[in-house]
Write a protein that binds this DNA or RNA. Structure first.
Lengths: 133, 133
DNA sequence: CGTTACGTTGACGTCAACGTAAAGCTTTTC
DNA sequence: GAAAAGCTTTACGTTGACGTCAACGTAACG
């Protein structure tokens, strides 16, 4: 009866779905992929605050374009980590690589946008080069 | 023998592949999708300058993120078009919509980049919220 | 006790733009 | 004249993150 399990002892899959605005399929899929491992009450999944935290991280990573396989690695790093020192560094490096990818992507996108703008402005968009034929 | 077919009467699929740096599979796929319709010498495909122009447009559109189905519509607009007047307008509108999508995408990407930068800088990346547990 | 809500596993379907054999032509080259 | 190029069609595979059944169990409501 200590004040350890505060407020939410466990939640159902539906609860989490509402909380994070995802479908059950999504959470089961993450489980299949080894990203989360909720306990069971018989067949039913029971999600703890730890699961909740992991899901938050997963969805955060998703917004940054991390693949689920990468996310699993990153989550594992924190689980295995010795005080988080070395591991946290690896996570940072990973994030920095992703950041670089995103910046490269943005630069490509910028170029494409500028080109498309020019083509539209000059009415040269989808204009076939003059064929005398 | 008139000077109508200048320089390149027709080309093979391999020729076009080298010219545009794509694989035969790609050109055949575009044909399946109804984007191009090269003539035949028996079984072999013969590409004219018209096909060449279309392929150029397709690859240009690809760089802007147009789906192949969209490209087919756009190409059709030019083929059917009455002097290109009305049709060209529709094409421009289409391109402007795509441009808007690209800009929206860039804005999302920008936001994500800023957030990720902040998280990295503050070492809060993938840091689970403090659980007293 | 029937209905409704919510949960389970398993497994195939989706989307886009091709990749990748497989198996067989024909033409060019040595 | 044989092997290598280059062409053809047919058709299944790939990638990621789920969607969408199917078929069933369980639990609470009224």
């Amino acid at each position: 009866m200590a004040a350890s399990d505060i407020e939410r002892p466990h939640a159902s899959i539906g609860d989490l779905c509402r909380e994070f605005d995802v479908t059950p399929r999504t959470l089961r899929f993450y489980e299949d992929k080894g990203l989360i491992a909720p306990r069971r009450d018989g067949q039913r999944r029971l999600y703890t605050s730890r699961d909740r935290a992991r899901i938050r991280l997963i969805l955060q990573g998703r917004r940054f374009g991390f693949a689920l396989d990468e996310m699993r690695e990153l989550l594992d790093l924190y689980d295995i980590g010795d005080q988080g020192r070395t591991q946290a560094r690896r996570v940072i490096e990973h994030a920095e690589r992703r950041l670089a990818e995103m910046e490269a992507q943005r630069s490509e996108l910028d170029t494409a946008i500028r080109e498309l703008r020019t083509l539209i402005a000059e009415r040269r968009i989808f204009a076939e080069p003059q064929a005398t034929n």
